[in-house]
Computed example of a mutant assay.
Amino acid sequence: MGAFLARLGEQLAERWLTLLVLPGILYLAMVRAAFTLGQTHPLDLSHLAHQVTVWAAEPAVRTAGGQVVLLAAILAAAAVVGVAARSLGAAIEHTVLAADWNAWPAPFRRLAAARVTARRSHWDAARLVVHQRREEAGRARALRRRHDPTALHEARRALDRVSPERPERPTWTGDRVNAVTVRLRRDHHLETSVVWPHLWLTLSETDRSETSSARQELSAAYVLAAWAVLYAPLTAAWWPAAVISLLLATTARHRSRVAAEAYAQLVEAAVRLHTGDLARALGIEHSGTLSADIGDALGDLLESRLPEIEVVAPDPTTPPSG
């Protein structure tokens, strides 16, 4: 037991150091460099090195007690900044995925609605092109003519760049995650929010590990976006901070889209592959491919029912009022 607790403490300390302290220390160093170099000599590393030497020569820093206090202050400040970045990342993730945008305050809700409407117009236009290309391919096959499928593939890629399904959210990432729910509901009458918690408990450790890793990658991308936001105000004192912020934001956007794609694919594949096993475990007869009937049966079994309304009959011995 003692060895287990010691190992657990080491893992927690490692995660605390990696996720919070090290990025926070780097940020604090950049803040200090920004206000030391300023806009006049922003890339003068010799000036920065000279200032570091001057700070290191301070009497309070040269004593053991002063060094301990300074180290503790730096670690605490770095941890605070790291916690702030992760909290901001969670807020950015919530905003970008926009699962509840219909409940946002009115000004933001109107902006999101306008964005959804615009994205739907682009998607409908791209979907029409895909339909036209498919008809052209069908006519070519019917007439036994050679047909290059490149145009159809390109039209489909253009459609996916707008959204994998008809947009319901203001961002591509939000629609990519939501597309899992849309497809499973359409193809198999499955409600992901109902089936997934039960299915998760039946998955193998490997499947759960892969899905959890993909989900963590998605959250990590938004933490990176939060660091981009935190670096942006430093631009007022040091213009290279704008470059850092832009690089972080660009990387975060790319990583979030890749992670959302991976996470959505894993969740959809897990549901399609293992829902039959869940149905059999719950006593539902099932063989062959996953069908809409299985989805309906699982929904009836797993969805919570509303409480019955109790109708109280009037007492015949009680005289009517009035």
Rank of each mutant, 00 (worst) to 15 (best):
A220W: 00
A13Q: 14
E268A: 12
L128N: 06
T18L: 10
E268Q: 12
T181N: 12
H122W: 00
R161C: 05
S304L: 11
P167F: 04
A214V: 05
E10Y: 14
Q265S: 15
L111A: 09
G138M: 09
R7V: 06
V271Y: 00
R185C: 02
V130C: 10
T202S: 15
T251R: 11
R127P: 01
L247T: 01
A77K: 06
T235M: 07
A91I: 02
A79T: 11
Q67G: 01
H94D: 15
V258K: 13
P319W: 07
R15D: 12
A249K: 10
L184S: 10
Y263T: 05
R145Y: 06
T250N: 09
V54H: 05
A137L: 07
N178H: 09
T211F: 02
V312S: 09
V21E: 04
W196K: 05
G288M: 12
S321K: 12
S209P: 01
T173G: 04
L71A: 14
V21G: 06
P233C: 11
P316R: 08
A103R: 12
H153K: 02
L71K: 04
T173C: 08
L37E: 12
R215C: 00
L22C: 04
V312Y: 14
A72I: 04
A297W: 00
A98Y: 00
A64W: 11
V312F: 09
A151K: 05
W239E: 02
A57V: 05
H286E: 10
A151E: 13
D315F: 00
A297E: 14
G9L: 06
H188N: 13
V223W: 01
L298T: 10
R185H: 06
T317R: 12
P307F: 05
D187F: 13
V83K: 07
L28A: 13
L43H: 08
A56E: 07
P59H: 00
S46M: 09
P197E: 09
A292V: 07
M30E: 07
L19P: 02
T202L: 12
S304N: 12
D315E: 14
A29V: 13
L266E: 05
R146T: 15
L248K: 10
S219M: 06
R166N: 02
L199E: 07
